[in-house]
Design a protein around this nucleic acid. Structure first.
Lengths: 204, 204
DNA sequence: AGGGTAACAGACTTATAGGTCTGTTTATAG
DNA sequence: CTATAAACAGACCTATAAGTCTGTTACCCT
């Protein structure tokens, strides 16, 4: 029974550093040997646990990426009151970790989407699924915000959700250059500015 | 003298279809042979005109990408009055061509930025330069809008510009899946919504 | 303790892709 | 018309990377 644990442990190890290197260098630009060299493991070990590079990547998407996106960008908003402030704080928080060159999973996601778009429909589906979960959750939060009196009832929740996701993905694409702190500040500023429009206005 | 023309013509041919295929399949995932096969040309022809794959790509960025981004996203706004409406119309127009699966150069740009980030600083600089020109132009247009009475004087033009670019890049990343028409509609709707905030308010 | 299997090592195979090199065509100049 | 160089063809070289296969180590079970 201990072997099961060992198996899981090494698979986790390979997947974790695999995601890191895929993120840094891109999928097509990283070889299995790159990952194995970092781990001081052999080809035999890798292909004992995974069938192929593609299957390996998909396992990363499902096991790591999905859960991380969920815990960093979805869960913090779920069920909370005052969704707009929660969303702004959550985005700000995620962008802060991104500043310090840590893995920002929302961005990793869009990164891979651009890389696999039109090339691998199979992988694309898994990636798009995560986006959909994210979007659905934002819509739900906004709708709940309406009934709780935090969000203007006349806004189109779905449109706002896609607008939020797109702006987030975009700002992260721009932040690659290094002046992240300034970009983050400007972005959050405009985001909160935008939120003023869709807040619930108390009738005078 | 006619040879010069022929030289330019074939170089243009290779570059044009090169950009198309690089856009479709990504830089690392397309081989020189892919491009040459499409053109029914030989390795000899290619390496007679270009030193390497990388130098070839850079020439595409400088010759094609820069000019196309300029003509599709920068020039239409330049010097116009009522910049907000101009920007919205310009973005809407660019997104419409993107719907029909044509090359949308603003997106191609961000596409390559994500692909080369952290991998090739040399190419990254050329790509970032285009972004900077875009941003500077937006800032200029917004500032001019202030003096012309179209834009609220209290807004931070630079922050708005980065916010605009990031949202545009983001929405294009999302549009890869196919439901482009709906996404475009939602995006432009929210964009115009956002613009109401930074419009010039007539004093009552 | 020892047999058996899971877990891993690493040499090998094969395909692909960037780049080279030599030969051939084409076209302009004198 | 011919010499000469530009423009191109395509076989070849070489490095890399995905995947295979055989051998070896480590651990569990009886």
């Amino acid at each position: 029974m201990d072997k099961q644990l060992k198996r899981m442990a090494t698979m986790q190890r390979i997947q974790t550093t695999g995601l890191e290197i895929f993120y840094q260098k891109g999928y097509h630009n990283t070889s299995i040997d790159d990952i194995l060299k970092e781990l001081r493991l052999s080809k035999g070990a890798f292909y004992y646990h995974f069938q192929s590079k593609e299957e390996f990547f998909i396992s990363i998407v499902q096991n790591l990426l999905f859960r991380k996106v969920y815990s960093s960008l979805i869960e913090p908003i779920e069920g909370e009151e005052d969704p707009l402030n929660k969303i702004a704080a959550c985005f700000d928080n995620a962008l802060e970790t991104a500043e310090h060159n840590f893995l920002d999973y929302g961005f990793v996601l869009s990164n891979f989407i651009t890389e696999f778009n039109g090339k691998n429909p199979d992988i694309m589906n898994y990636l798009q699924d995560i986006l959909k979960v994210w979007e659905v959750n934002l819509v739900t939060a906004l709708q709940k915000g309406k009934t709780d009196g935090y969000v203007n009832r006349h806004i189109d929740s779905e449109a706002v959700a896609t607008y939020l996701i797109s702006s987030y993905i975009g700002i992260r694409t721009l932040m690659v250059e290094g002046n992240g702190k300034m970009l983050r500040y400007k972005y959050i500023q405009q985001l909160r500015h935008y939120f003023k429009l869709i807040e619930h206005k108390e009738p005078a």
